[in-house]
Design a protein around this nucleic acid. Structure first.
Length: 416
RNA sequence: GUGGCCAUAGUUCAGUCGGUUAGAACGCCAGGUUGUGGCCCUGGAGGUCGUGGGUUCAAAUCCCACUGGUCACCCCA
């Protein structure tokens, strides 16, 4: 019997974690500098939370969630995204009562049962942020600028920012009606998928990648032509702020996100470095969601980004993260010195020095090879002779220089 | 959920028209005159050829099913 990780899940191995940790550090740095604080929520929630927020008719809720009954019969779902949980926590803990604007971020695993593919796993990792309590376009742009800053710091430049406004509860229904009527005229020529969407979610038809659909809908009215004054003003403000901050973007009037809760601003960042799963990050405003989930009417805006897709680009670029290496490797030249080496290695560690020694009773040559493989900065060879004289040769494994040091002062050498 | 391609040492891959003890490189282990790594040299360990069935005197090789991987559709991070 051989056990394997579940289809679509992956081990992140010791050889890969340095790159993850490096990226995570930069992500956290940027969040901190933009003054977003981390929130950690459970990875599972009651199923209704996701159904209500993401939308019953979305693909995510309809066919991708890991939903099961626990032993007491409650319907539980592994979170497919982070916003719903963050807002649930915001409401449950009354975060809005003590602060007018809550700026939070998260980073962790998400779960969707899709067919695995390049850049698409069943357990994957997202980082994202939410600014809950602000209706302003300035906040939208802060979220977008922060997202881009992360990629910029990681040396990623090959991306495109697309933005759109999907309107609000007043102007979107009006537009949907107009679009639906237009689509019905050519319904029989559209792809099957698109035909199904005309009634439930006509805007998604415009986002279809089917070439025939694209051609048929080429001249259709866009949401951006039907925005009411408020949404229009908000959208204009977002665009002018982006320009003011020298952030390049393209307006895509057909951009619709796969989650139903967005209002006004929606955006997506894609990269040509990825395969067909080219979305690096996406987000937008959700002014109705907090109320929808049982809180007070509270506007908000946020984004989510995929860790694995970020990793794919960093790996492709051949980015080398700093590796974890011992400061010193203590080698025992003979069996009489092994006890001293073990004891001293332990002592150095308790003083905050990364020290390593051989645990496999290996030959001196093997120990030196190990020191080299571990990329230790120094090696110290100690045998009976050194124990007697109280001094040994400390070798710098990078520049190959050597020096004689007193065994009693070894700790000071590394702590000064 | 649908389709294409793929599955041989730890890893990346060879393996002829089906033919006898399945190879290479890298990695790993041990040595290279009795106490110093990286390069080099020598030797060694390591594979029920994804699983199950079928065809055949004979299957890593041909056929089928299953499982897994991968890429695309779809969807999205």
């Amino acid at each position: 019997m051989n056990y394997r990780s579940i289809k679509g899940t992956k081990d992140i191995l010791p050889s890969e974690t340095p790159l993850w940790q490096y990226a995570e550090q930069i992500i956290r740095d940027v969040f901190r500098q933009f003054n977003y604080k981390e929130i950690r929520t459970p990875v599972f929630e009651t199923t209704a939370l996701f159904a209500r927020s993401i939308g019953e008719l979305t693909d995510i809720v309809g066919k991708e969630m890991y939903t099961f009954q626990d032993r007491s019969g409650d319907s539980i779902t592994l979170r497919p995204e982070g916003t719903a949980s963050a807002l649930r926590a915001y409401i449950q803990n009354n975060l809005g009562e003590s602060l007018p604007l809550s700026k939070v971020y998260y980073i962790g695993p998400m779960f969707r049962q899709e067919r695995p593919q390049a850049g698409r796993l069943r357990q994957f990792h997202q980082f994202g942020a939410e600014a809950i309590g602000s209706p302003t376009a300035e906040t939208d742009v802060e979220i977008i600028a922060m997202t881009l800053e992360i990629y910029k710091r990681l040396g990623i430049t090959n991306y495109t920012l697309q933005i759109n406004s999907v309107g609000d509860e007043e102007c979107r229904p009006r537009y949907k009606e107009v679009l639906r009527n237009e689509l019905l005229k050519i319904a029989d020529k559209l792809s099957g998928e698109s035909q199904k969407r005309i009634e439930q979610n006509p805007m998604r038809v415009l986002d279809s990648k089917d070439e025939n659909d694209k051609a048929l809908t080429a001249g259709m009215p866009l949401i951006t032509d039907y925005l009411n004054d408020e949404c229009q003003a908000h959208f204009e403000r977002v665009k002018s702020l982006l320009s003011a901050y020298s952030i390049p973007f393209t307006v895509n009037g057909r951009l619709v996100r796969g989650l139903d809760y967005y209002t006004k601003t929606a955006f997506e960042i894609t990269s040509t470095e990825l395969g067909s799963q080219d979305a690096l990050a996406g987000g937008g405003r959700y002014d109705l969601l907090v109320k929808e989930l049982g809180g007070k009417q509270t506007p908000g805006v946020g984004f989510a980004a995929g860790m694995e897709r970020l990793m794919m680009i960093l790996e492709k670029k051949g980015f080398q993260p700093p590796v974890q290496r011992p400061t010193v490797f203590l080698a025992a030249a003979d069996d009489k010195a092994r006890d001293w080496v073990l004891k001293t290695t332990m002592m150095l560690r308790t003083k905050g020095i990364a020290a390593e020694c051989d645990l496999l009773s290996r030959s001196l040559k093997s120990q030196m090879k190990e020191a080299d493989r571990q990329q230790a900065k120094y090696s110290l060879v100690v045998g009976s002779m050194e124990l007697e004289t109280g001094s040994a040769v400390l070798k710098n494994l990078t520049d190959h220089s050597q020096q004689q040091i007193q065994l009693g002062t070894i700790e000071q050498f590394f702590t000064r």
